[in-house]
């Protein structure tokens, strides 16, 4: 079943008098629970497509359909709500909040997603999520004391603690070494399959491709 569609999306950047067409009418449908990897050379438009799909920037034309609604027509507040409740994000850098402990990072996400949960229930979910990402023993640690791999594990836990329908991952292993990259990808696969989360991932690392269910290659702003 299709969870998300991108229909004829175009994106043009204007720099002075120069216009650059980054996306030339992209069509994409993501199937529920599937991990889709977007690959392609630098400048092929894969990151732009991911950020438009995630509601982080507007398309110049086309539609992004999610649960029967067109994200491109939504007001800022509506998009924010979708991002908070239905989307999860893992970025190249972990981007954890420097003054919150590991446990508090997850609590923040639960609060932001406005999940109606009792305090105890939240605590229970955080504990089980930290167990899943094997970070329970570091729950009181601040990001500054975590290793790169640990930070990315926490970032993944933060991205899915509120059980989003879609996970957007922009080069989630780019800052990690090979061993840690594989660990992180295994974790993403395991968690998204367990929680039935649809994933769109941008990567340039071919070693990560076996973890995807579908691989889409982009070139010059088009899916090839």
């Amino acid at each position: 079943m299709t969870a998300f569609t991108v229909e004829n999306v175009k994106k043009t950047f204007t720099n002075g008098e120069i216009e650059e067409q980054v996306l030339n009418g992209v069509n994409l449908a993501l199937k529920e629970g599937e991990i889709t990897a977007l690959v392609g050379a630098s400048g092929s438009g894969k990151s732009t497509l991911l950020t438009i799909a995630a509601g982080l920037q507007h398309a110049s034309a086309g539609q992004v359909m999610f649960q029967g609604k067109n994200l491109t027509n939504m007001k800022q507040e509506e998009i924010r709500k979708v991002r908070a409740q239905d989307f999860g994000f893992v970025f190249q850098a972990s981007h954890l909040v420097p003054f919150l402990t590991v446990e508090e990072q997850l609590l923040l996400m639960l609060d932001v997603s406005e999940k109606r949960m009792h305090k105890q229930e939240k605590k229970k979910r955080i504990t089980s999520m930290l167990q899943l990402v094997e970070m329970e023993h570091r729950k009181d640690a601040y990001p500054s004391s975590l290793s790169g791999g640990e930070k990315q594990r926490v970032a993944i836990a933060r991205a899915i603690i509120h059980e989003p329908k879609l996970l957007f991952a922009d080069e989630p292993t780019a800052s990690l070494d090979s061993k840690r990259s594989q660990d992180v990808m295994e974790l993403i696969r395991e968690l998204t399959k367990t929680l039935h989360i649809t994933t769109l991932m941008v990567t340039h690392d071919e070693e990560m491709l076996p973890y995807a269910d579908r691989i889409i290659t982009m070139k010059d702003g088009l899916i090839v």
């Binding site: 982080l56 924010r80 709500k81 991002r83 908070a84 409740q85 989307f87 994000f89 970025f91 981007h95 909040v97 420097p98 923040l108 996400m109 932001v112 997603s113 933060r158």
Partner: peptide, 13 residues
Amino acid sequence: IGLYGILKAIGVK
């Protein structure tokens, strides 16, 4: 600025 951007991206008002 970076932190605010990330917080906004994950849905913080």
